[in-house]
Amino acid sequence: MKINITKQSGIYTLTSEQILPISPEKAWDFFTIPTNLDKITPKEMDFKITNNPPSKTYKGQIITYKIGILPLIKSNWITEITHLEDHQFFVDEQRFGPYAMWHHEHHFEEIEAGKVKMTDIVNFKMPFGIFGDLFGGALVKNKVRFIFESRFTILEKYFTS
Results as ranks from 00 to 15, higher is better:
residue 2 K to T: 12
residue 4 N to L: 08
residue 5 I to P: 01
residue 6 T to A: 03
residue 7 K to E: 09
residue 9 S to M: 13
residue 11 I to L: 03
residue 11 I to R: 03
residue 16 S to E: 05
residue 16 S to M: 04
residue 18 Q to K: 00
residue 18 Q to P: 01
residue 22 I to L: 05
residue 22 I to A: 01
residue 24 P to T: 10
residue 26 K to M: 12
residue 27 A to Y: 08
residue 27 A to R: 04
residue 31 F to I: 12
residue 31 F to T: 07
residue 32 T to Q: 06
residue 34 P to M: 10
residue 35 T to S: 14
residue 36 N to D: 10
residue 37 L to S: 03
residue 39 K to I: 06
residue 40 I to S: 07
residue 42 P to A: 11
residue 42 P to E: 04
residue 43 K to D: 13
residue 43 K to Y: 11
residue 43 K to R: 15
residue 45 M to Y: 15
residue 47 F to M: 08
residue 47 F to Y: 15
residue 49 I to M: 11
residue 55 S to K: 15
residue 55 S to G: 06
residue 56 K to W: 08
residue 57 T to Y: 03
residue 58 Y to E: 07
residue 58 Y to S: 05
residue 58 Y to G: 04
residue 58 Y to N: 05
residue 61 Q to Y: 00
residue 63 I to W: 00
residue 66 K to R: 12
residue 66 K to S: 12
residue 67 I to L: 05
residue 68 G to E: 02
residue 68 G to K: 06
residue 70 L to V: 07
residue 70 L to H: 08
residue 70 L to A: 08
residue 71 P to Y: 10
residue 71 P to R: 04
residue 72 L to K: 14
residue 72 L to M: 10
residue 72 L to Y: 15
residue 73 I to H: 13
residue 73 I to F: 15
residue 74 K to Y: 07
residue 75 S to W: 06
residue 76 N to Q: 08
residue 78 I to F: 01
residue 79 T to W: 05
residue 83 H to F: 11
residue 86 D to F: 14
residue 86 D to I: 14
residue 88 Q to R: 14
residue 88 Q to Y: 12
residue 89 F to S: 13
residue 89 F to M: 14
residue 89 F to W: 11
residue 91 V to S: 05
residue 93 E to F: 10
residue 94 Q to E: 07
residue 94 Q to D: 07
residue 96 F to C: 13
residue 100 A to K: 10
residue 107 H to P: 11
residue 107 H to I: 12
residue 107 H to W: 14
residue 108 F to K: 13
residue 109 E to M: 14
residue 109 E to I: 13
residue 109 E to G: 12
residue 110 E to C: 14
residue 111 I to M: 14
residue 113 A to W: 10
residue 115 K to R: 10
residue 116 V to W: 10
residue 117 K to A: 06
residue 118 M to E: 04
residue 118 M to Q: 05
residue 119 T to F: 01
residue 120 D to G: 00
residue 121 I to K: 03
residue 122 V to R: 02
residue 122 V to H: 01
residue 122 V to W: 02
residue 123 N to C: 02
residue 124 F to V: 01
residue 124 F to A: 05
residue 124 F to G: 05
residue 125 K to D: 03
residue 125 K to W: 00
residue 125 K to A: 02
residue 126 M to C: 05
residue 126 M to L: 03
residue 127 P to I: 05
residue 127 P to N: 01
residue 130 I to C: 13
residue 132 G to R: 13
residue 132 G to A: 14
residue 133 D to P: 10
residue 134 L to T: 15
residue 135 F to K: 14
residue 135 F to T: 14
residue 135 F to E: 15
residue 137 G to P: 11
residue 137 G to S: 08
residue 137 G to H: 08
residue 141 K to C: 01
residue 142 N to F: 01
residue 143 K to F: 03
residue 144 V to H: 02
residue 147 I to F: 02
residue 149 E to L: 04
residue 150 S to E: 03
residue 150 S to V: 00
residue 151 R to W: 06
residue 151 R to G: 03
residue 152 F to T: 11
residue 153 T to F: 08
residue 153 T to Q: 14
residue 155 L to I: 01
residue 156 E to G: 09
residue 160 T to I: 07
